[in-house]
């Protein structure tokens, strides 16, 4: 019954057997899709059908399916996480599509994000950037009294807004240069805006930027496509802060 009522979509999905294998688009049909399904649930339906007919299911990354882990990726009709802003693929609902739509689904494409299989890419470059300094190693001692170190509400809000980055990589996928500037600047900013982050602030920006470049992401052209594609709407202000801190740290370093 539901199947008769649902939408039918024709999908063109990037299929690639492995990192070195050549990839190409294959046509798949999604039948009986209801408006309340998420995009990933729609793909689950497609995969069940593929498995039933003895074919390889479409590989895609996912974990929480509630927009907080950053595992889901994929580029839907040219846009990372699909047409909706401030939305991850797992939170994108099929009500934004209509019966008969043709949807092109591709992996996040960047040299620094090599394709593992189909829509799954290796985003461990982000982990290595984070490992290059996205933490605090200065000893901060025992917990302070609540009001011993004052942090303004606005500063803490901005630090928190930067900390909401889920590291999904949509910024890289959206950028014409495959630049990781928005991700790196968010990780830098959430520490740079708080007192604990000050001691290592300059070394952190130098080391994380060096790692970003070593991973061979592109440079930032300030197009803003990253922020527009970001599911948690990380601000471009972070990139300016990173640029500023980087210039300052480079000038001051001995």
């Amino acid at each position: 019954m539901a199947e008769a009522k649902g939408m039918n979509l024709s999908l063109k999905i990037w299929r690639q057997a492995g990192p070195q294998a050549p990839g190409s688009f294959l046509e798949h049909q999604a039948k009986g899709v209801t408006p309340d399904m998420s995009f990933l649930e729609m793909l689950d339906v497609v995969n069940e059908e593929l498995i039933r007919s003895g074919k390889q299911p479409v590989e895609f990354d996912h974990d929480c399916r509630e927009g907080i882990c950053g595992a889901c990726s994929m580029v839907i009709n040219g846009n990372p996480h699909g047409p909706q802003q401030a939305t991850t693929t797992c939170q994108l609902h099929m009500r934004h599509f209509k019966d008969g739509d043709a949807i092109v689904i591709e992996p996040f494409r960047a040299r620094a994000f090599p394709i593992v299989k189909d829509l799954v890419v290796d985003r461990s470059a982000f982990d290595r950037i984070q490992g290059a300094g996205g933490y605090i190693s200065a000893n901060t001692g025992a917990a302070q009294d609540a009001n011993a170190i004052l942090v303004g509400k606005k500063e803490s809000d901005r630090a928190f807004a930067s900390a909401t980055c889920i590291g999904c990589g949509a910024c890289v996928a959206a950028c014409k240069n495959a630049s990781a500037a928005l991700f790196v600047s968010a990780k830098l900013s959430h520490l740079a805006l708080l007192p604990q982050g000050q001691v290592e602030r300059e070394e952190r920006v130098v080391n994380m930027v060096a790692q970003m470049d070593a991973e061979r992401f592109g440079a930032c052209t300030n197009t803003g496509a990253c922020s527009a594609s970001c599911p948690v709407e990380i601000s471009l202000e972070n990139i300016a802060r990173m640029n500023r801190d980087y210039a300052k740290a480079s000038l001051k370093r001995r």
Partner: peptide, 8 residues
Amino acid sequence: ARDSRYAV
């Protein structure tokens, strides 16, 4: 930095 192009 992008070794394969997007179709769309």
